Every structure is written in C-alpha cells, then in structure tokens.
Amino acid sequence: MCYRRSMATKPRALIIGAGISGLSAAWWLDKAGWTSVIVERAPRLRDGGYLVTISGLGLETLMRMNLAKDLEGLTYKFEENVFNDNNGRELLRIRYKDVHGGVESLAVCRDDLARTLAKALPESASIRFNETLDHFYDDGSKIQATVKSGDIIEADLLIGADGIRSSVRNESWKDVDCLEHLGYSYAAYDFEKKDVLKSDCVSFNGPGHLDMLYALRNDRVAALHIWRDDMMKPKDEENNFEIVRHVTAGSVKLVADVIDGAEESGSSPIMDRLTMVTLPKWSKGRIVLLGDAAHCLTLMSAQGACMALASTEILGKELMATKDISQALDNHERKLRPIIEKLQQRSRNMASMYIPKSKILFYLRNLLMKLMPASWVASWHANAVKFEVDLTKS
C-alpha cells in the first residue's frame, strides 16, 4: 500500500521511534500544522528504564505542553542518598532538597514520561507498532520510505528519533564515525521487592564501578550499575546478569541479593556502553536526527530527556515560523548545538569524578568525601545542578 500526500493536505513527518523524542516531536509538529506517522519497532511503548530528572528547558517545554501537572502524580521525591564504599561503610548522606532545593524539577521514570507523552498525542499523529523502516530515499522534494510491512509512506520530513543505535543515522551518516565511548558500561533494571532498602536511595562505590539502588512505588526496587569497560570479560556477554555479578563481585551482600532477586523475578536488564553521539551536523536534506540519535549525552549528564524535549519544541516552532524546511532545520541546530556541546563536555568530566578508574584515585576520593562536611559536598552538587539548568536557559 502506498500512502501519498496530496498538495492540498498538511505536510507530513515520518518519525522513527516512539520514545521521548519521537512522541514529543509529533506533539510539536501538530502545533506547526503538520501530521505525523510514528514507526516503532516494539509491540508497545517500552517499559522500564532509569529515573530521569526534568528541569530547565525540558521542564519549561512540558509546562508549555500542559503535561507537567499530569506528571506530578508520577514523580518521586527522595529524601536522601546514602553513599557507601564497597564494604558498606557509610561515607556521607546528601539530602535531595539540599541539592535540588533551589531548582524546580520533576524526577520520573522514563516509561512514565513516555506514556504521558503518548496519551497527549493529537489526532494528527498515529503510531505503527511492530514496524521498522526498511529503506528510504530523499529526492529533494519528498521522502519515499518503505517499511517492513511493505507499505510505502511519502513524507515531507524524515525524523530519526530511534536512539543511540539509530537506523536512520546509520544509513544517512554511514561514513561518519560519530560514536564516542566514555570507557564505561551500565545496566538498569527494576523488580518487585518489599522493604529491601533502609533509605530511598543507597549507593555503593568500588574501584571502577558504582552500584545505585533506589525505591520505587508499588514495592519495587530499581538498580543502576555503572562500571569500567575493561572490567567485563568477553565470555560474560552471554548473560547480562552474569556480567553484572562479575563487575560487582567486590560489593556488599545487598547488591548481590538485589541482582539475584531481579533475575529470579524474570527482570531483563537494559545494558549498554556509555556512548555519546557527536555529529558535525544533525540534518541532511529532508532528514533530521533528534535526541539520542543526534547527540546522546549519556546518563552522566542527567539532561538527555530534558534536551530531547526542548529540541522538539525548537524544531516545531521553527517549522511553524517558516515553510523552508532546510532553513528550519538549520535554525533548530544553531539554537541547540552550543548547549549540547557544553553538556557533552560535562559528561566526559563527570564520569571520572563519580567512578575513579584507579584504586588510588578511588581511595583518595572516598577519603575526601569522608573528611569533607556533607554540606560542602551538597553545595558542590547543587552548584553543578544549577550550572546545568542555567546552561540550558542561556
């Protein structure tokens, strides 16, 4: 079947990926007078994922979408994070209100944010689940795309919002080496387990790895593990939980119990390398990349979801301001790129701070955390959060 667009109809975007970027893009394109077809590989919106904190430009975007209030009932308000060494000795406690108290923010799970965006989709947008992009061609005046089912979709704009492994980027930027590995990998998962934690959030840090456990609603526990890439062995790649066990072998019994409980529950960890995407340009002709496909910041920045939301608003408003698609894409990139580049540099710096690679640096960092007043450490984190928020507003 061929879906063609007549000159009398609204312009159409074909969006690959029903994540935060793709769903938000469809919402803003509707405001610009466009229609959207979202193609998603999964059979439904994806579950799981770690917590994200929405602040700065991202929060302002949600407010202008009238979705901030919808998310308030889904937010988490943690009291404190208890930092421990890999033997379980407490190093310090940081209260979240001391870190985020001066900055308006929402802490939500990625899947809750995605579902909220999906519920807000206008009638001009549709999602085709269990579908993938087969091939596409930009003839200068339109996009001709064929999807796995065999349907041909004609569109005015192709948006790659399909994450760090973007098929759109891999096809259109195939000669560009754009993946920058930070030297770390991560695993994230959650499962039902009652009363396993004594605090909202506890962290255990050993040489080369960080284990963070935090409580979710409905008696669920979530875990995030980050480790040096060289701690993985090739044979471990057969089983994700075996990889996590290997890299956390020197941590406390609580971490091992959580890993065992998650595997027994049937949970499946999300696992990948901490990798940024650094492209010289995010668009080509009638093709544009958004979110992680264009400029993955990694979870170190804590601004990936925020920038995905803000980026789609900028794009929608630029397409509203001009019918020249090329000009709109250039304006979108000109406004966003300086912010992204600064946040990516922070990601490079933060990885070495939170997870020292050598034992000497690890013990020196822990000694410093033990000796410094907690208020000093909280102030440092608060200034970092404020810097990131101010940066996105600059």
Rank of each mutant, 00 (worst) to 15 (best):
S21W: 00
S21Y: 01
G22L: 01
G22R: 01
G22V: 01
A26Q: 10
W27E: 07
A32W: 02
V37Y: 05
I38K: 13
E40P: 06
A42R: 02
P43F: 07
P43V: 03
G48P: 05
G48L: 04
G48H: 06
G48I: 09
I54M: 08
S55P: 04
G58W: 04
G58L: 04
G58C: 06
L59C: 09
L59K: 02
L59I: 10
E60L: 04
E60S: 03
L62V: 09
R64E: 15
M65Q: 13
D70W: 02
D70A: 10
E72L: 11
G73S: 12
L74A: 03
Y76A: 09
K77F: 14
K77W: 11
E79M: 15
N81A: 12
N87T: 14
L92N: 13
L92Y: 11
L92F: 11
L92D: 04
R93Y: 06
R93M: 03
R95P: 02
Y96L: 15
H100N: 10
H100C: 02
G101V: 12
G102E: 09
V103F: 11
E104K: 10
S105R: 12
L106N: 03
L106W: 07
L113G: 01
L113Q: 03
A114T: 06
R115W: 14
L117E: 05
A118P: 05
K119E: 14
K119T: 15
